[in-house]
Design a protein around this nucleic acid. Structure first.
Lengths: 297, 297
DNA sequence: TAACATCAATCGATAAAACCGATTAATAAA
DNA sequence: TTTATTAATCGGTTTTATCGATTGATGTTA
């Protein structure tokens, strides 16, 4: 039994497809097939059930998974910990960010790089769904996102700030006359909203469904700047967290009330993973940012 | 990084001697040397400091140890767990027993084997020191012993019973006239005691030292039956837990008081280790044994 | 139903890597 | 000083991980 084989097994279990897993692992399908078989022989029990050309995990495979993951994770953690000892000379930091928190990362990453110029920072934008999967595959150190609806026991959550949802319109719109708006008053406004898959969109849908209100959606877009461009044009309104539009000009935003819609900004990371120094340093900077006098919210 | 290399590292760290470690691992010294070096290169930092022909662990090595151990342990646990699924068809059970608890294991192992005849049981006698080291090397599943003085955070302890310490003499000795004896009355009796290294001996030494009493030791032996033979001969007394002499005839034993000396029988096992079914089944039998109407004590 | 696409297993060959024995160099012990 | 002990290194051998090609089984589509 070797870590190599455990890693192969984990990937095969995840994808339930030897060919695809081999490709991800940059080995041939034949190699993967042989290595898994060898592991099974050593363990004395099959880990996969071969049904025709399909594979599915056996009960033994299911049970073995946790141990294999723990073993691989521990080795990785030890490796990461040692890299840290070299005082972040060669560090790398991979951060997943949802589109809604673009402003948070834009500000903090500059401060971080000023302090630690040798660290290579990767920023990956995506929907929370995409990012959470990458987190589970060890492709990200942490995620900046709004609160998740379904919390997962293998993740840990650090709340950062509360951000009110706002209705956004062009400076020529009727919004200039009010300083707040009720949920039910939004019902008949023509909306441009983030596409399905965005957590903000899911949040909006849930709220309106619960109150039995309709949404008058004209356009769905999976890009926030384009959404705001549409709003600026004057025809449409949109709904976002105030944090999301912090640095945009030429728009008007008013808080939504009855009920007041709030979203929690969060750091999501994987439990049981060694926390690199670069990661904890970044957390500190985010903390400063969110605790400074009304940086967001 | 492979489990093989982590195992090599752990053994080398334990023995601080590549030649000896290689021998235990059944590989050549040159192979061990190369594999450790390769691991060090991959980790980007030396794990051992080479001072002439000596080696000692670097700080990095010290830190890395816990992760390596965790990784290897998890893989082993997964392996053990799967073996268990085969319903103990090929099980093996390794039990360490201190001499003092000979009677406990003698009775329980018979019952266990009657229930699970296919399990191969190894029983290893030794001092607690020897046995604890074997436990840490995964050479034992658990230990039956009296309570340890220095508890170790990587072990877990299950108390079984309390056994009073007794003064033991021949049927012709003056002990027949009394039914208990004070600690300070033992001071001038000629004693045959277990040798240094026995936990019972350490316990006795500690008690007498604390009370500023002398021990009049005539003979030290590292074998309990011989100790009792000497006692039977009439010249000497000895001190043991009552449990230890449970099935011996032709001796007289009286409890020691002021203070009453008691020892706790214990199961000691390693934390974070998968508990085989054979092990939990054995625990059940020991439980029955110690909870039955005065089996020991 | 026939042709095609997809997938895991298997085979033979190759490249990589673990391993060994012998030797060297350093150093501790006698 | 001599001897014994120990880790590193070198060259050669064995083992094994890997690959590409093929097979056979099984879905999928025309």
């Amino acid at each position: 039994m070797e870590l190599r084989q455990l890693k192969y097994f984990l990937r095969a279990k995840e994808l339930l497809n030897f060919t695809a897993a081999a490709s991800v692992l940059h080995i041939s399908q034949s190699t993967l097939s042989q290595q898994v078989k060898q592991l099974e022989i050593e363990l004395g029990t099959p880990l996969f059930e071969r049904i025709g050309k399909r594979i599915k995990l056996t009960e033994a495979g299911e049970l073995f998974h946790d141990y294999a993951l723990q073993s691989v994770t521990s080795a990785n953690n030890g490796f990461q910990m040692l890299k840290d000892l070299n005082n972040m000379e060669t560090g790398e930091l991979k951060i997943g960010v949802t589109f809604a928190l673009r402003q948070v990362i834009a500000t903090t990453v500059k401060q971080f790089l000023a302090l630690y110029p040798k660290i290579l920072v990767h920023i990956v934008y995506g929907t929370s769904e995409e990012l959470l999967q990458k987190l589970d595959n060890f492709e990200l150190d942490f995620i900046l996102s709004f609160e998740e609806f379904e919390k997962n026991n293998s993740h840990q959550y650090q709340p950062l700030f509360d951000s009110p949802m706002v209705l956004i319109g062009s400076p020529e719109s009727d919004l200039k006359k009010v300083n707040k708006i009720r949920v039910k008053d939004i019902e008949n406004l023509p909306l441009a909203l983030p596409a399905k898959g965005f957590s903000t969109r899911k949040y909006i849908d849930d709220v309106f469904k619960k109150k039995n209100l309709n949404l008058n959606i004209s356009i769905e877009v999976n890009d926030i700047p384009m959404l705001l461009d549409l709003v600026k044009s004057g025809k449409y309104y949109t709904i976002l967290a105030k944090t999301t539009i912090q640095d945009y000009d030429s728009i008007i935003a008013v808080p939504i009330i009855q009920p007041a819609l709030m979203r929690k900004g969060m750091i999501i990371s994987a439990k049981d993973i060694y926390e690199k120094r670069a990661v904890s340093e970044f957390y500190k900077i985010i903390d400063q940012y969110t605790n400074s006098p009304s940086p967001v919210s």
